[in-house]
Design a protein around this nucleic acid. Structure first.
Lengths: 214, 214
DNA sequence: CCACAATAGTGTAGAATCAACACTAATATA
DNA sequence: TATATTAGTGTTGATTCTACACTATTGTGG
């Protein structure tokens, strides 16, 4: 059944990853310009499933952590109403390493959140809202782990937090806090990277799961 | 433009109020049974505006504080997709006092959140989600003020917090914390209610506005 | 092989915040 | 005038937070 107004429902996803110590957003190129991955529903599907489908089809990062952000309604020039259900996705550095063979996919490109190109509609605003949500969730959840590879050092985890928050953290206090959360464990292995003391490698105790703290 | 799938977009609102020291939800009666206030869009309208319109038309509490909660997608028996954008509303005790002459409105009734009747679809789940969101927001915002009348005592504000959280709070610690937030001010007036010392009346410094704290 | 550069890893002390706790003050009523 | 009832107020110990500097371990280059 269709309501009295023409509805255009779309799903948009803000895919985040940490690249080169910066928080970046993955954009796709369409004939009309850059936009967030997303698009209309196809058939009868769960909204979460639709978000994941768009992400997978358009970027290949189907394993990302996905969370609903907000729903917007926007009158269209043609007289209908565009309803956008926005999600954000966290792509782990691990998934980034393997280039998701972009066969037949729209062209895509990571862009620094601080310097997005002109985007379709209000996609820039959606990305900014997603960033605020992500930053505030750092304070009361273990969501940052979703951006990490399977094994990571504490210094790397700290750097991810610093990048998202835009401020530097105290090394000793950060480590004490994270370890007290009981959300990661040492693997026993070390990472020998460069001319300096190797770092312990840690892994998430409950990978894929975001715990709330306090 | 209409997508390939039949869409049924509706707005549902969970209207909360404190009545008789309990957190209650306002339900409306339809031929098919009890449900949350809400319904389909009418013409091209902002989602927030649609939520307020439904709330106003169906309950008369148009002045309530409104906030988007979550968006659900649910396959329908007929083969289409029902998309529900859920909101919650906080009705101040002050607004409750004046009975919103329910002329021509669907029958409505407040129900304790703990003992809801059978509701349409997943409306009970939506109400439960709204309650969790509200309870968690108490910890980091001044949202509880939206449930208070224009002037209120500290004891009343504490009771509202206790009701939502489902736990009792320490009177001295509560007062210290609230006053430190700098979100309310004494009016200078007192409430003489019953055979005991009168209480100072306070009011919100920024009524209608919800501040985040810390 | 030795010096150096670079990052890993660790503890403490003072400040701030949180949590527990009990009595006096002011009013209405009987 | 005695009593019941709610308003209003501080302190102390525990916990948490914040600031802060040095040793450990490796790779590299002379």
């Amino acid at each position: 059944m269709i309501g009295p107004v023409a509805l255009n429902l779309s799903i948009e996803v803000v895919p985040f990853a940490i690249r080169a110590e910066r928080l970046e957003v993955l954009l796709t190129r369409r004939p009309t310009g850059w936009r967030l991955p997303g698009g209309p529903l196809e058939g009868v599907e769960n909204l979460d499933a639709a978000a994941r489908r768009h992400l997978t089809d358009q970027t290949g990062f189907g394993g990302a952590y996905l969370e609903q952000l907000y729903t917007f309604g926007r009158p269209e020039a043609a007289g209908g109403l565009a309803v956008t259900v926005a999600y954000y996705a966290l792509v782990s550095c691990g998934a980034l390493a393997v280039d998701p063979a972009a066969d037949g996919r729209a062209r895509m490109e990571w862009s620094s959140l601080a310097a997005l190109p002109d985007l379709l509609q209000d996609h820039a605003g959606i990305a900014a809202l997603a960033h605020r949500r992500l930053a505030s969730k750092l304070a009361y959840s273990t969501i940052a782990l979703q951006l990490m590879p399977e094994r990571f050092t504490l210094t790397e985890l700290q750097a991810v937090n610093e990048t998202i928050l835009g401020e530097i953290l105290d090394k000793r206090n950060f480590r004490k806090r994270i370890l007290a959360l009981d959300c990661i464990e040492a693997t026993g292995e070390t990472a020998r990277r460069g001319g300096h003391r190797p770092a312990q490698l840690y892994r998430a105790k409950r990978p894929g799961q975001v715990d709330f703290i306090k």
